[in-house]
């Protein structure tokens, strides 16, 4: 009787995949998931900041000023993460022409650009006490500047094309070209010049960072991650409601809203 039992696992996956891509279904999911992500982000960011600013010990070399790491490093991680999400959403847009993926890529671009800008600004503020100047042509700082250019190029291209679907598909190609180039750019710039301190967290065998410093950093990272998903869901919802405004499910949603508020 139930057809799902006869379906193979891959078939079920594709069924789920296409179902998830339906804007109406995604909207219901986003509505339910949004409070979890936003509250989670708020609580984790607060906890991470308190832990980082008050409980983590001061650095033996950099003193108190190292604490900007709790804003700087998660922002830098998120700016790369967001670009990869954008490129993957772009690939899905090109292959399956899924509206949801297109909305995810569009919603992620300004967020990623903001994370990159935050990483650059905090990096330059950190650079002042450490290197004596706000800007040095250091390898990692410079490659983040180029990442910011890539984000701004994406936003400029998508906005320049009047037709929405053409715009997002062009953006998807650009994001994919960018993601292939990202490591090349990164290593070129790194090779070109490097002053930046070596990575302290990714050396998993023996992280050269005190655990009391590391734990708030990881909490901050998950906080940033949840914040990204919360804002992304919000923006994607907004985007989908706008593009689907002539469909029945949006009409139903708007009609339902006041009724639900009363109950």
């Amino acid at each position: 009787m139930s057809s799902s039992s006869t379906l193979s696992l891959t078939d079920r996956f594709w069924r789920w995949f296409h179902g998830f891509g339906s804007p109406a279904r995604f909207d219901r999911f986003a509505q339910k998931a949004l409070p979890w992500f936003s509250w989670g982000a708020g609580i984790l960011l607060l906890a991470g900041l308190i832990g980082g600013l008050f409980y983590a010990p001061a650095d033996y070399q950099q003193g108190e000023s190292f604490r900007i790491i709790y804003v700087h490093v998660p922002a830098a991680w998120m700016s790369l993460f967001t670009y990869v999400v954008m490129a993957m959403a772009g690939a899905v847009t090109l292959i399956w022409r899924m509206k949801l993926a297109d909305a995810v890529a569009r919603a992620s671009a300004p967020l990623g650009a903001s994370f990159t800008a935050l990483a650059l600004i905090t990096g330059s503020l950190w650079g002042k006490p450490m290197w004596g100047t706000y800007w040095v042509w250091d390898g990692r700082l410079t490659s983040y500047l180029i990442l910011l250019f890539l984000y701004l190029g994406y936003i400029a291209l998508v906005n320049a094309i009047a037709d929405r679907r053409t715009g997002s598909r062009a953006g998807a190609v650009l994001a994919l070209v960018g993601v292939v180039n990202l490591p090349i750019i990164h290593f070129s710039v790194e090779w070109w010049n490097t002053l930046h301190q070596g990575a302290t967290v990714t050396k998993f065998d023996a992280p050269s960072i005190d655990t009391r410093m590391l734990i708030p950093l990881l909490i901050m990272f998950f906080g940033y991650q949840l914040y990204y998903f919360a804002v992304m869901l919000l923006r994607v919802r907004n985007e989908l409601l706008d593009t689907e405004r002539r469909t029945q499910w949006v009409a139903n949603l708007i009609m339902d809203e006041p009724a639900r508020d009363k109950s």
């Binding site: 180029i146 250019f149 890539l150 701004l152 190029g153 400029a156 291209l157 650009l174 070209v177 960018g178 180039n181 750019i185 070129s188 710039v189």
Partner: peptide, 8 residues
């Protein structure tokens, strides 16, 4: 704007 970053 699109191409210069890729030329670097």
């Amino acid at each position: 704007l699109l191409v210069i970053p890729l030329f670097i």
